[in-house]
Design a protein around this nucleic acid. Structure first.
Lengths: 113, 113
DNA sequence: AAAGATACATAAGACTTCGATGTATTTGCA
DNA sequence: TGCAAATACATCGAAGTCTTATGTATCTTT
């Protein structure tokens, strides 16, 4: 199952920030693969969505970049900034609260893993 | 706290369908108030978002309508259709799954209420 | 040698929601 | 009694986000 695209809307930034705050540095393609892997293919981040998001995060000062070459192929690494760490916590907290609210609203039975 | 609007994106239809599947019939304004009340003001559905959504649900055959007059003021009631009930279950199930995935991905600590 | 994976990026279009605006009635309170 | 606030519908332009398509180029595997 792949989630309908509306669901993921609004969560992309949060996902990317969270990943970067737990991985010191990652490059774009790596992020798409990591999300795919961690979510068992349920969330597929397209490159058309990811790169604009990364650029936006950079221009907001939430991430920093450094470019590296593997052979002749470019690789652009992204790292979380101090402001990005703060923002990540805010976004994750807000999302957690939202999940609680929705669980109640939709009367979802939570399974204790 | 009111959730940033991106978060609600993609969940509006699900919320409306769920409410209608547990309330026999509701009218637009009532839905906005009910959501506000149930979520302790955290989710505010704007009328500019709700009415187009209700009209869309109707044209998809997921809800049926009946108009009533309270004095001179019109009230348009919406009720879930059989197809709507099926759709509601699908959407709620999908959201529940999404919730689990995101909880894992964002490493959210769940509180057992 | 070719296909598929890796790796970046942009851009037009679709879709959803917001915020503003509009009309009209009813209720509450000062 | 008069006026503000709440009730109740609705539309529309603008904004924001993501999809799909497209483009370039390198590396790996068969």
């Amino acid at each position: 199952m792949i989630y309908s695209s509306e669901l993921i809307k609004g969560t992309l930034k949060t996902i990317v920030l969270k990943l970067l705050s737990t991985h010191t540095k990652m490059y774009g393609y790596e992020i798409t693969q990591k999300v795919k892997e961690l979510t068992l293919d349920k969330i597929q981040i397209t490159e058309g969505a990811l790169y604009p998001t990364l650029h936006a995060l950079e221009s907001e000062g939430l991430v920093t970049t450094e470019t590296e070459y593997i052979g002749k192929r470019m690789r652009k690494y992204y790292s979380i900034s101090p402001a990005g760490t703060v923002k990540t916590n805010e976004k994750v907290t807000e999302f957690a609260d939202f999940l609680n609210t929705m669980t109640f609203l939709l009367d979802i039975k939570t399974t204790t893993a």
